[in-house]
Design a protein around this nucleic acid. Sequence first.
DNA 1: CAGCTAACATACCAATTGGTATGTATAAGC
DNA 2: GCTTATACATACCAATTGGTATGTTAGCTG
Lengths: 203, 203
Amino acid sequence: MASKGEETQKRILDAAQIMILDRGYAGVSVDQLISSLGLTKGAFFHHFKSKKMLARTLIQRYSDEGVQLFKDNLARAKKLSDDPLQQFLIFIGLYEELFEGLTEPFPGCLLASYVMEMQQFDEDTRNIIDIEFELSRTELTTLINEISKKYPPRTELDPVSLADGFMSVFEGAFILSKSLHEADITVQQLRHYKNYIELLFSR
Amino acid sequence: MASKGEETQKRILDAAQIMILDRGYAGVSVDQLISSLGLTKGAFFHHFKSKKMLARTLIQRYSDEGVQLFKDNLARAKKLSDDPLQQFLIFIGLYEELFEGLTEPFPGCLLASYVMEMQQFDEDTRNIIDIEFELSRTELTTLINEISKKYPPRTELDPVSLADGFMSVFEGAFILSKSLHEADITVQQLRHYKNYIELLFSR
DNA sequence: CAGCTAACATACCAATTGGTATGTATAAGC
DNA sequence: GCTTATACATACCAATTGGTATGTTAGCTG
């Protein structure tokens, strides 16, 4: 069981994430954050030595979860099929599942939120973001190369940028979804990405 | 020739746009803005009655330019070919041209920047953003429907979400590009989008 | 050239900012 | 049962925030 302190820290992180996702990091003051939780300055600065440290801790947690989900989904996909192309399609499908049936637009991606106010953060914090994008890139590039070997694409194809497309789809869809307030945009764009992959490699 | 006042207002808007694109709206204070221009509070509040009005004016200008570019490119594409599919491909190609040969990542999209801190803005301001996304959606949906009529796609196809894909590609690519600091991501993702369109309708 | 207005500058304001210093209550460790 | 560390609360701080009130100056207009 988490200690009381750990639980409070988690509550602060949870609230911060929600607030930052719709007001931006600079748009959320420590005072607003703590008063939304019924806490005080003392509590906040006991758990985080500064607002910037909160930012770092928060994005680290977010990134860790994202990476974990990515690896889990990739592992699941690889168990469900031996064919690399099918693995990729299943992989995308697993993400589709997560975003199916949402009634509200997904609250957004914290990585993107941070990128939009990059200069607010130090290099360590920015690196955490890079690393997740790069992980997706390298893992999916490998997979795409396997696919290409087995199913040579008709036209020449850049595997890295095709891999980048995966994260790009999310980030783009989240923005449209939030602005237009339509929950299903993310799934739709994911489906198009999956469909593109299929068309690329289908004989 | 623009009057002195108009020119100063433009300088404020230009500086604000650059600063907001890498610090976020809430991350840019009026003081920082004016001191970067060597101006004073008096000057700023002479031209804008509040910081929020600056935000509104800025996004309106940005949106107007984006809409204009969109309409120009669409009109050019339609002049360059009679075939709706070719029109779409040319249209995308015209955007590719704009992002080719960049040495630095594109500074970002102000629409996305605002969406990331939505709650900072009033409804009028948010509507300006919606309108641009919706324009792209409706215009491109029409074009896609024309294409579908002439070149029936093999699988069933949602024209609206395919149209949304266009803006989505930009927004997603900008984020990756900025985070990874790679200038060519936007062109690459645009090419994939174009390629997808081709594959969808090529018999 | 008088009068007016646009285009600023200066000086101030209350409120909010992130952060600190110091207290205190509670629980764990020995 | 005494100590010590954890988990907060209270009270304060200088700096910065967006905004205002009041100048001043240059350029047009009649």
